[in-house]
Design a protein around this nucleic acid. Structure first.
Length: 577
RNA sequence: GGACCUGUGGUGCAGCUCGGAGUGCACGCCGGCCUGUCAAGCCGGAGGUCGCGGGUUCAAAUCCCGUCAGGUCCGCCA
């Protein structure tokens, strides 16, 4: 039907008879003898010179056959890849008429996302969306290639899985054949891939859809895609190496940026220096511990377990009203207050200005200036509280105030390792898994599991990029004794464990290789590579933040017949309370 | 479950503080003119339940209450 793509015609084609197909973009009419039509396909735009308008309108689908000709002198268009040429002597065939679209197909036009989603098929015609989806496909392809060359085998796992009541809320699928019973859609292929290791697959990977019925966010959809891997007879370092290699392959091919290695931070370092387990390393602004400096302070607000601060550079000047805003924000996050000290020049060198300045001892002032190497116009922000709060609040302020440092790479990856095995205790006094119940403890710490469980580290790790968590993984428990102990401290009885994960434990009893794995969130990865801060921009058909699809109107009620077939009876709202 | 922001012809906005006739801008659409445009240009035109419901008022896009939808965040996401 066509001989060429619109965007690929160039001066090399001059004189050729070509047929191109696509959508009518802008038209420029000059009376009945001359009109220009921009014909668009996914490769770009070519200008077609026609006599009269042929009744063409925006988004008509046409086939144009004509001769590639050089444009007359002075009429070339540098903004167009095909701007040196045009198609003349055109024969136009309308393949499909089109209603006037609700918005123009142009990257220049801003349209409310709701409207874009209702007409997603039109939105997808836009250059930006085409680019994102094609880049996404390229990333998938590169990842497949990278893992296959590292000895991994792609295996598909079931979407109709069995309920494992732990962690995220599951999407439930009623069984027609067994009334009253349900499948669930997998939160991730976690257990399936461990079974593949028991099954001797050795190294598995899959570009897997995962489903979690939790509230949506800019970086979270109900369904999302993970590059999921698992490998046998490996250490944590092996897994980091596999993934690092894949990241290097993908980033270099997609962005041209060459990464040599990915720095490794311990969880403790990350929390101490950046106040978060997903640090944005595109800028420094590290958190400094000031507890020692203020251990004998007269300042009442600083009499706390943990005192920490960050230095805000002079490039981010903080007016009094901005400071007031920051104080309010810190309080919203649970701080009792936020102290600030502004460095100013004086006859005696740098001095600190602050409502607290007069209470600040001379030694404290000196130590503070020294600790931060502070210079005029810089501001120190200080929080004094329990350590988890000082870290968390300063970490948030750091993210709010920090700007990517032009000296640093635009993509700053980091591994965060040695996460705590447990997050804390639930209301029944049982420990809560940091990652999941199959995560291998750090065996150096395992003896502390009863005396000081919260200080037990795990063999788990996150990959972080520019302050986003891209993925996480762990070495899994393959030993009975350790798994039993973990279930026990999590408050899962052996009966409960049997009921929930019996098939997995049974599998492990038949010879489980040591194994571990990782899952990389592809939506987030691709959004970051595309320079988007919302994953909906790299998903063909996403849902709104209330889980609605404006195009299909899903979710919708189903018919009484369907309900009956599934043995389901809707209950009225008031019956729920 | 909670907080904040947004909702005005097909699209994007202004108007809202301080109530006075659906007032305005840009794009698109329809018609006319136009033989080298390319975000074409010029002339004319059509197009509105100001998200929805209630209240205050002589009078509501504007003030108040409620509600729906969208966005961002908190909770949640082993």
């Amino acid at each position: 039907m066509r001989s060429d793509y619109c965007g690929q015609i160039s001066s090399h084609d001059i004189g050729r008879q070509v047929s191109v197909c696509g959508w009518v973009g802008r038209r420029r009419e000059h009376g009945e003898h001359l009109a220009f039509i921009d014909l668009r396909d996914h490769t770009g735009i070519i200008q077609c010179v026609v006599q009269g308008t042929h009744g063409l309108h925006s988004e008509y689908v046409v086939k144009i056959t004509g001769t590639v000709s050089p444009r007359p002198e002075g009429t070339s268009n540098k903004d167009l890849a095909t701007g040196e040429v045009e198609i003349t002597n055109c024969e136009v065939e309308v393949l499909s008429k089109a209603d006037s679209p609700p918005f123009s197909i142009s990257d220049r036009i801003e349209v409310e996302e709701n409207v874009r989603l209702r007409y997603r098929y039109l939105d997808l015609r836009r250059n930006k969306m085409q680019h994102h989806l094609r880049m996404r496909a390229k990333v998938n392809s590169l990842l497949r290639h990278s893992f296959e060359s590292q000895g991994f085998t792609e295996v598909e796992t079931p979407l109709l899985w069995t309920p494992t009541p732990e962690g995220a809320r599951e999407f439930v699928v009623p069984s027609r054949m067994k009334p009253g019973s349900f499948y669930v859609l997998p939160q991730s292929p976690q257990i399936a891939k461990q079974l593949l290791m028991v099954g001797g697959l050795d190294r598995y990977y899959q570009i897997a859809r995962c489903l979690r019925d939790e509230d949506l966010r800019a970086d979270r959809q109900f369904e999302f895609t993970q590059l999921d891997i698992e490998a046998s007879f490996v250490t944590q370092q092996d897994i980091l190496d596999f993934v690092t290699q894949a990241v290097i392959d993908v980033v270099s091919e997609i962005t041209g940026i060459s990464i040599e290695s990915i720095p490794i931070l311990t969880w403790e370092q990350s929390m101490e220096l950046y106040g978060t387990d997903k640090p944005d390393l595109r800028f420094d602004m590290q958190i400094v511990d000031l507890t020692a400096i203020f251990k004998d302070t007269q300042i009442k607000a600083f009499q706390a377990n943990s005192i920490k601060g960050i230095k805000v550079p002079s490039s981010c000047p903080l007016s009094r009203s901005k400071l007031d805003n920051l104080v309010a924000k810190a309080k919203e996050m649970g701080a009792k207050g936020l102290a600030w000290f502004k460095a100013v020049d004086s006859e005696d060198g740098v001095v600190l200005e602050s409502p607290l300045a007069k209470h600040l001892g001379e030694l404290e002032s000196k130590a503070l200036i020294e600790a931060f190497g502070i210079e005029p116009l810089e501001t120190i922000l200080i929080v004094a509280d329990e350590i988890s709060l000082t870290r968390n609040i300063l970490g948030n302020l750091r993210n709010e105030l920090g700007e990517p440092d032009p000296e640093k790479p635009s993509l700053c990856f980091a591994w965060v390792v040695d996460f705590p095995l447990f997050e804390g205790f639930d209301e029944d006094g049982n420990l809560i898994s940091g990652h999941h119940p199959f995560t291998m403890p750090n065996l150096e710490d395992f003896h502390l599991i009863d005396s000081d469980p919260l200080s037990v580290r795990s063999q788990s790790y996150d990959l972080v990029l520019n302050g986003w968590e891209l993925g996480s993984g762990s070495i899994r428990i393959h030993r009975d004794d350790i798994q039993s102990k973990i279930f026990s401290v999590l408050g899962i009885s052996s009966e409960q464990a049997q009921e929930r994960f019996g098939f997995l434990l049974s599998a492990f009893s038949f010879g489980a290789p040591p194994h571990g794995g990782f899952a990389l969130g592809l939506d987030r990865t691709i959004a970051l590579l595309a320079g988007e801060d919302n994953i909906r921009e790299v998903i063909a058909f996403p849902k709104t933040s209330s889980g609605f699809d404006p195009m299909t109107q899903a979710p919708k009620p189903i018919s009484p017949q369907q309900l009956k077939l599934l043995s389901l009876v809707p209950i009225k709202d008031e019956a729920l309370d």
